[in-house]
Design a protein around this nucleic acid. Structure first.
Length: 536
RNA sequence: GCCCUCGUAGCUCAGCUGGAUAGAGCAUCGGACUUCUAAUCCGACGGUCGUUGGUUCGAAUCCAACCGGGGGCGCCA
C-alpha cells in the first residue's frame, strides 16, 4: 500500500533528523483539496511540540530529506500551510491500485482481516411477533445484516439471530385480541386492533385460552416476518425462542449462579440483583417477583449467558432501538456479574425512525408495514435507502417522496452505473474487442482526470471497509458506493472506451479500468446486500 | 428531576478517533443527446455547522454550560 510506503519514508526521515520522541504513528491522509497534493502528513505539526522544534522548520527539513530520497511514485514533496508535508504522486500509483484490485478480485480486495475467526453474533430486529414489522424495524434489519456482512468479510465468524419474544404479557394480549375478534367483541384497550388480527381470527379454531390463542397467532405472524425478511434478502441463522429459554431451567440456573456469587438479595420474597455494583445507575433490579415469576431481565440474562457460555460466542452485538436504552445498563451489569467480560457485549442503539406524518404508532394508525414499502420501491431501494444514513441519526422518512422519487433514487444511480459496465462489455463483445491479459496492457495510458478519480475512489475501499467495520457503520460503504457511481458516470461520459478515435491500446487500458470498477461495485453492493444488475 | 442521544443548505442526509476554502442528493434556475441507452453529465443558486465559552498552532469534529427535538428512568415485555 502506498500509504504504508509513504509513512515509512516519513518515519525514516524523522529518524534521520533525530526527532525525539518519534511519534507512534505517522498519519497520512488524502487532502480534501486536490491542490494540496495526493497525500498529506501533519506529522511535523503533531510532533514538533513534543520534540521541541518549530513545526514549519521541521516540515522543511522533512521535505528536504524526502526530496533527496523520494519514495516510489512520488513526484514532489512540498511544505504547505502551518507545516503540512504534501506529496504529489505520479498517476502510476493509481495504476498500481488498478492492478491490485484486479489481481485480488472481489474476494480479496478490501478484505482486511481484522479478526482471526472470532465468533460473533449479531442479534437484530427481534421485534415482538405481535404484528408485521414496519419500516422502522426494516431500517435496523438492513443495518444489522450489512454489519454482519462487514464482519464476515473482515475475518469474523458471524451468526445472525432474531430473538423471538414469544411469551409473556404481550402474547396473552395478542391472544385476547384474537379471541375478541372471533367473538365479534371490541378489542381490549391494551390489545392489538390491527386488521391482521381480524384476518387471523377467521382461521383460528383453538380454545379461548389467551396464551394458546396468542401463541398460535404469534407463530403465524412470525411466519410473515420471516418472509418479509427473506424478501429483503436477510437470512437469519437462528430464530431463538424466548419461551424455550424460560421453559428450560436456564433462567433458574442463571439466577442461582448469581446467588452463588453473592450479588442477589432476598426481600419481601422477591430476588433482587444488586446491579449498581456492576455499573448500573439504578440501585438494583428484580429478577424474581414475589409471585415466583421471573422478570424479563432474568430471562434476558439467561439468554445472554446462553449466547456466551452455552454457545460460546466471543462477542455479541445487539442492535436495539433507542427505546430500549433503559435495558442496556442492567443487562451489561448482569453479564459482568456472571463473570463475563463486559467488553464482549456491544449494544448498538439506533435512533428512532419517524415518518413525516409523525412517529409511527398503531394508535395514530400511521404504521407503515415494511412489506408495503418493499412492494412499492423494491428490496434494493428499501435496503439502500436505510443504509445511506447512520443509525445514530434520528431520520424522518417522507414516504410519498420516497415513492415519487424512487426512479431518481441513489439506488438507480448506483445500479445504472453498474449496468453501464455490463453494457460496455456487451458492446465490446459485439464488436469483437477482446480484453488482453492485464500484463500486456499499458495502464500508463490512463491519465484522464476522470479515470484517475475512479481509481482514487477504488483505492479508498480497503480503508472504508475497515472503518465501517470497526465503527459498526455500514452506511460508510453506502456513501462510498455512491461516490464510485458518481466517478464512474463521469468517466463514462467523458472517456469512451471504444470508437471515437480511441486507440486500441487505450481501449484495453480502459476495459481494465471498467473491470476494476465492476469489482468495486460488486464488493460494495454485496456488503450492502443490494443487487448489482446487468441491465435495468 | 436524572441519564442517553441528536441538532450541518429550503428538504433528506454525509463529513465527527481535530487539519488547510464544510459536501451530496432532492428542490430552483441555466446548459449538453448522430456516440458504449441522457435512469447520465456540466454549471449556478443556497450554510454565522443550535447558542455561548473552553482546550489547541488549528474545532462542524474534543470538553463544559445552556437552548431545542427524540428516547429512557416498572415486581411490563
Amino acid at each position: 500500500m502506498i500509504r504504508d510506503d509513504l509513512a515509512a519514508a516519513v518515519r525514516n526521515a524523522l529518524v534521520a533528523l533525530a526527532v525525539e520522541p518519534l511519534p507512534e504513528q505517522v498519519s497520512l491522509e488524502r487532502p480534501a483539496n486536490r491542490e494540496h497534493g495526493d497525500w498529506s502528513s501533519n506529522v511535523a505539526l503533531a510532533s514538533a511540540k513534543k520534540a521541541g522544534r518549530n513545526p514549519r522548520e521541521l516540515a522543511a527539513q522533512l521535505v528536504e530529506h524526502l526530496d533527496a530520497n523520494p519514495p516510489a511514485h512520488v513526484e514532489s514533496v512540498e511544505i504547505a500551510g502551518p507545516g503540512f508535508v504534501n506529496f504529489r504522486l505520479a498517476p502510476t500509483w493509481l495504476h498500481d491500485v488498478l492492478a491490485d484490485v484486479v489481481d485480488q478480485g472481489t474476494a480479496a480486495y478490501a478484505a482486511p482481516q481484522l479478526a482471526d475467526g472470532e465468533k460473533v453474533m449479531v442479534e437484530f430486529v427481534s421485534a415482538n411477533p405481535t404484528g408485521p414489522i414496519h419500516v422502522g424495524n426494516g431500517w435496523f434489519a438492513s443495518y444489522g445484516d450489512a454489519l454482519a456482512r462487514l464482519l464476515a468479510r473482515t475475518g469474523h465468524q458471524v451468526s445472525r439471530e432474531y430473538y423471538v419474544n414469544d411469551t409473556g404479557g404481550q402474547i396473552r394480549r395478542l391472544g385476547a385480541s384474537l379471541i375478541a375478534h372471533r367473538k365479534g367483541e371490541p378489542v381490549p384497550e391494551d390489545g392489538y386492533p390491527g386488521e391482521y388480527v381480524a384476518e387471523l381470527a377467521t382461521t383460528y379454531d383453538g380454545t379461548d385460552d389467551v396464551t394458546e390463542a396468542g401463541q398460535w397467532a404469534a407463530e403465524r405472524i412470525l411466519g410473515g416476518i420471516r418472509s418479509t425478511m427473506e424478501s429483503i434478502h436477510i437470512h437469519y441463522d437462528e430464530w431463538y425462542s424466548q419461551a424455550s429459554i424460560e421453559e428450560s431451567s436456564a433462567v433458574a440456573e442463571t439466577v442461582a449462579e448469581l446467588q452463588a456469587k453473592g450479588v442477589i438479595t432476598d426481600e419481601d420474597g422477591a430476588l433482587w440483583f444488586e446491579s449498581k455494583e456492576f455499573g448500573d445507575p439504578r440501585e438494583r433490579r428484580v429478577l424474581r417477583k414475589t409471585n415466583g415469576d421471573y422478570t424479563y431481565l432474568a430471562g434476558d440474562l439467561a439468554y445472554h449467558r446462553n449466547k456466551f457460555v452455552t454457545r460460546g460466542f466471543d462477542r455479541v452485538i445487539n442492535v436495539w432501538g433507542a427505546d430500549h436504552h433503559g435495558q442496556v445498563a442492567s443487562l451489561v451489569a448482569g453479564i459482568k456479574a456472571l463473570g463475563i467480560d463486559g467488553d464482549r457485549i456491544e449494544v448498538r442503539l439506533g435512533q428512532m425512525i419517524s415518518l413525516t406524518s409523525g412517529r409511527m404508532s398503531k394508535r395514530a394508525g400511521n404504521v407503515i408495514d415494511l412489506d408495503d414499502v418493499v412492494a412499492d420501491i423494491g428490496a434494493d431501494a428499501t435496503r439502500l435507502l436505510s443504509l445511506l444514513t447512520s443509525i445514530d441519526q434520528a431520520v424522518t422518512i417522507d414516504l410519498d417522496k420516497v415513492r415519487s422519487e424512487s426512479k431518481e433514487s441513489p439506488v438507480f444511480y448506483v445500479q445504472y452505473a453498474h449496468t453501464r459496465i455490463a453494457s460496455i462489455n456487451r458492446v465490446a463483445a459485439e464488436r469483437g474487442v477482446e480484453r488482453l491479459p492485464i500484463a500486456q496492457v499499458d495502464l500508463g495510458l490512463l491519465t484522464h482526470e476522470r479515470e484517475l478519480e475512479v481509481l482514487r475512489t477504488l483505492s479508498e475501499l480497503p480503508d472504508i471497509v475497515r472503518i465501517a467495520t470497526t465503527d459498526r457503520a455500514p452506511h460508510k460503504v453506502a456513501t462510498w458506493v455512491r461516490e464510485l457511481a458518481d466517478r464512474f458516470h463521469g468517466f463514462y461520459h467523458d472517456c469512451y472506451v471504444m470508437g471515437d478515435g480511441v486507440s486500441p491500446e487505450l481501449t484495453q487500458a480502459r476495459l481494465w479500468l471498467v473491470e476494476s470498477s465492476r469489482i468495486g461495485f460488486a464488493i460494495g453492493l454485496d456488503l450492502l446486500g443490494v443487487s448489482a444488475p446487468e441491465s435495468m
